[in-house]
Write a protein that binds this DNA or RNA. Structure first.
Lengths: 150, 150
DNA sequence: CAAACTGGTTGCATTATAAAACCAATGACG
DNA sequence: CGTCATTGGTTTTATAATGCAACCAGTTTG
């Protein structure tokens, strides 16, 4: 009945999804990468119900992905800013973006491109690589059995 | 009341999450990367309710991420295998995995490592790079306004 | 000091999820 | 060739999450 938790799973993917696998968390993180920091900014950008946003911000803060800090404009409200742990979601967000760019739009549509601020060129497609830097395909990788500590 | 759809969003991230942003889809995709293909294999591995799995497999097939093909063992049932579109989720899955490896486990715990099948070494951490291959931090990137086609 | 704005919380309707029971079609077995 | 177990689901029912709107308190604005 209640949502299945995956915080005990042995799989790192499951543990990540347990934290940010809902419909809104990664969009909030995306907005935070884009510089949004106020409750109202997130709410307007996402169009999410305020109670949902409130709950999500609470869990993101509790999980150490966002930090609640005094507003930068001197007002009495809070800013929600990414922690280092939150900023480490950057590759996740970029991977989702690039897949969406490739498959989420019909040929007539376009989308705002994400570019290198310095040179203005688009970000390169993410590649999974081995320790030596050689690109890896899915079938080039295997999951080893869990090392037993004993 | 019904779930907010994001398939009309201008943001590629939102469109991706609209397709695979639920609790189970990316775990099914993960299992598919690991070679699982039968309904029962997914069900046992994930511990998900069968009706939910059934619904998710249907949408993943409808979205072109999985394909339903006759079972490879000659039985009358279906195999669910990744399409090229599904295989392109590899960086997404790896990004989620690496974040979970870094933040999802306490120091006493361990997890099965994903390694290069050829050399046995762990997969390298994903890096966002610019067109020239230089690593980019979040603050090094900007989102340009949507190009207007007119 | 009144009005409006920001940042929420509360209550209720609806939807999605979960668990279990049920069922049809194979396949295995005597 | 008839019985039984397995696989792959669907149906049913209960509960949790979501979405919306109304409400409210503290702040800022006039």
């Amino acid at each position: 009945m209640k949502r299945t938790r995956m915080d005990e799973a042995s799989c790192p993917i499951a543990r990540t999804l347990d934290v940010v696998g809902d419909w809104w968390s990664l969009l909030i993180v995306r907005d935070a990468f884009l510089g949004k920091r106020r409750f109202g900014e997130f709410q307007k950008s996402l169009g999410v119900a305020k109670n949902i946003l409130s709950a999500r911000l609470k869990t993101l803060v509790a999980d150490g992905i966002l930090a609640s800090v005094p507003a930068s404009d001197g007002s009495a409200f809070n800013d929600y800013v990414l922690t280092p742990k939150g900023r480490d979601l950057f590759p996740v967000v970029i991977a989702l973006r690039q897949w969406g760019e490739k498959y989420g739009f019909s040929s007539g549509e376009s989308f705002p491109p994400l570019v290198d601020a310095a040179c203005g060129k688009p970000v390169a497609p993410l590649e999974v690589r081995d320790a030596a830097g050689k690109p890896l395909e899915p079938q080039d990788t295997i999951l080893l059995p869990l090392p037993q500590e004993a």
